[in-house]
Amino acid sequence: MQVTYRIKRFDPEVDKTPRFQDFTLQVGENDSVLDGMIKIREEQDGSLALRCSCRAAICGSCAMRVNGEPRLMCKTRIRDAAPEGLVKVEPMGNLPVVKDLVVDMGPFWQKVRAVKPWLEPPAAKPEREYLAPNEAMREVVGVVACIMCGACVSDCTVWEVDPNFLGPAALAKAYRFVADPRNTDNDERLKSLTEYTGIWDCTHCFYCVQACPKDVAPMERILALRREAIKHGYTDHNGVRHSDSFAQSVKDSGSLNEGRLAVETQGYLNLPALIGLAPVGLRALKAGKMPSPLHHKRPGASQVKRIFNELEKEEKTT
């Protein structure tokens, strides 16, 4: 079949701004988007810069935006990406462009390094392997599957506004060690991950889950880290208070009480933050949107409370 690639190009030695260039070529039925890119590079324009190596979705080199979405090019079939014969290829987002489709992965690796990405096994070395249940290894392998391609970072909505955020790849990597029964320094790790730029900064937007070509689901790992952090007692955080208040509100009334949530998240004793809430509250009041201080119980609230009690009890016993 014939397809047209619309490729975003940028040569820092020539171009002031990026430009799009079209290439038309013949491709095979099951060819990947990468196969076509290689063909362009080999047959039409040798100066096209991109990273690629294994062609089998394991080396992690070729993450780019295909039709606006971060994809491994080698794992994306042309016929899926260009049903109407046109495919748009751009460099990943959130990372500086070096040339054409090559981005500077420096900030990406910097975050990976920041989570101390190695196992801290028990000091007493066993004669042979550390014993560990296969179930736990399977959980770990779910994240080991990460190929560090950067697709998750490309579209991370928090990284976009705050490049200090550790980001989905590094946090998933951190989870890989926390979830490993052989690791010994979870307490320290969770403590540092609870700080600014860490697990509580994730906004839950699912972009990374959607982007990941290896089903690592980084966001789910971040949420798992939050649960672990709470278990380890790192609860002095707005995130924890928010979650507690939210749950308590639903438990008490069947529904969410936003006013209470806002106050309880800051903590009743956190005066500066509470004062900070005031203008927002006043504006809401003026617009007739301030949630009623008398938060009414929903019908069925008693049943909701019962379900809460039953399942919270179950959670404690497991």
Partner: peptide, 11 residues
Amino acid sequence: KCCGFPILTLN
């Protein structure tokens, strides 16, 4: 994209 609501009280 994300409106930011989920992290309003966190960041």
